[in-house]
Design a protein around this nucleic acid. Structure first.
Length: 381
DNA sequence: CCCTCCCGCCACCCT
DNA sequence: AGGGTGGCGGGAGGG
């Protein structure tokens, strides 16, 4: 493997400083990735390019790219090539995940392990060729069980399922272990569980760098949890906490120093002078527990003029997000979608835990829905 | 000590 | 065969 890449790329002081985990986090890397590509003119992204510009190994780029693709921000174009869809694509992707979530909890025929989650929410209006395998009929579908097995445990799938948890259930807050139990089947094996939890952390880190979720902890217990922040508009006010305080405090410092270059984790640490450069502002993770309110959205008063529509993704400087947000304001329509979906599909979760959780949230949702929509709750089950 | 989660080996897919 | 992908889990940093 030859030598490590020369440190020639390091801009300032070449000395290696103390190893800091935070500076190498997936979340930060993702932020950098986003600020690097979320600008006009960007259409396609080369993984090699990204890796070198961000100063990380390819492997890390895969992690990011996989979750970004899961929420629609990116789409795979070809080997080593992704196309940038932007944050505008998130709402649609989430919508699809939502519909998807209901659907595949319906056709989970036989007692199979995990419901297969349909591929992805792929492209949109733009009808590019985009071959990929034919979605519908495919010859020996079962023969590819090998591949499918792999896919089954992919970061991408896990991400989608994780998101579905919020989106399909209207849950605002889900604790880490709740999520892991639901997503990883019942904790059969401890080590398997551990591995999966690691993945959950990975996912959560990138999702939170996009501000789709936020890390917190449950009110009662101090257990770690994730709060859904959603994509702004009509997100059922989970933490419609996109306001003053949250907005800025959550900002990550990025754009300034692009990189997670150098400083590998290692015991070798020739003394470090004082503190290292301070490009990295230490933004503390926000923790407004005051917002922590459980699912219960019964106190929603259907605020009509909320300023949430002006929400912008990520802590990016407004200039770079130019047209973002201008394209979507499909506010009310999702209600009917929900109604029809709800009555059309009877959600059937495999494991009891998921079922319980679901019905619990469903109750809350129904009352909320009836209030907001001004009609009697639809009957489910 | 336990929780987070970075790192990179190496099994798997594609060409 | 060769290179791109990405599961996986050891083990180190952080609280």
């Amino acid at each position: 493997m030859a030598a490590r890449s020369p440190a020639s790329t390091v801009p300032e002081s070449s000395k290696h400083h103390a190893y800091s985990r935070k500076q190498k986090s997936l979340g930060l890397l993702c932020s950098n990735f986003l600020s690097l590509y979320n600008r006009d003119g960007i259409t396609s992204i080369g993984l090699d390019d990204a890796a070198s510009r961000l100063g990380v190994e390819r492997r890390r780029i895969y992690d990011i790219v996989n979750v970004l693709e899961s929420v629609g921000v990116l789409a795979r174009k070809a080997k080593n090539q992704y196309s940038w869809k932007g944050f505008e694509a998130i709402p649609k992707a989430l919508q699809e995940l939502k519909a998807d979530g209901w659907k595949d909890n319906c056709n989970s025929f036989d007692g199979n392990e995990y419901s297969k989650v349909s591929d992805d929410e792929d492209d949109d209006t733009n009808g590019s060729q985009n071959d990929k395998s034919n979605p519908g009929l495919n010859p020996k579908s079962s023969a590819s069980s090998k591949t499918e097995h792999r896919r089954e445990k992919s970061l991408a799938l896990l991400t989608q399922n994780f998101v579905k948890l919020f989106v399909c259930t209207n849950a605002c807050l889900i604790s880490l272990d709740e999520a892991s139990k639901l997503l990883l089947g019942d904790a059969h094996n401890l080590s398997v569980m551990r591995t999966k939890v690691r993945r959950l952390y990975d996912i959560a880190n990138v999702l939170s760098s996009m501000n789709l979720i936020e890390k917190t902890h449950t009110v009662d217990t101090r257990k770690p949890a994730f709060r859904w922040l959603g994509y702004g508009e009509s997100t059922e006010n989970c933490g419609s906490a996109h306001n003053s305080l949250t907005t800025e405090s959550r900002k990550r410092a990025f754009g300034t120093d692009v990189t997670n270059i150098n400083f590998k984790r290692s015991k070798v640490d020739s003394s470090i002078g004082g503190t290292l450069n301070s490009n990295f502002n230490k933004q503390k993770q926000v923790k407004y527990e005051s917002f922590v309110h459980e699912v219960d959205r019964s106190n929603v008063e259907e605020d009509p003029k909320d300023g949430s529509k002006s929400y912008q993704f990520g802590p990016f400087s407004p200039v770079t997000v130019a047209r973002v947000g201008a394209s979507e304001h499909s506010n009310p329509r999702r209600f009917h979608d929900w109604e029809s979906l709800a009555s059309a599909y009877q959600p059937q979760y495999q494991n009891q835990a998921l079922k319980d959780l679901f019905s619990h949230y469903m109750e809350a949702w129904k009352s909320w829905y009836s209030k907001v929509a001004g009609k009697k709750p639809i009957k489910i089950s």
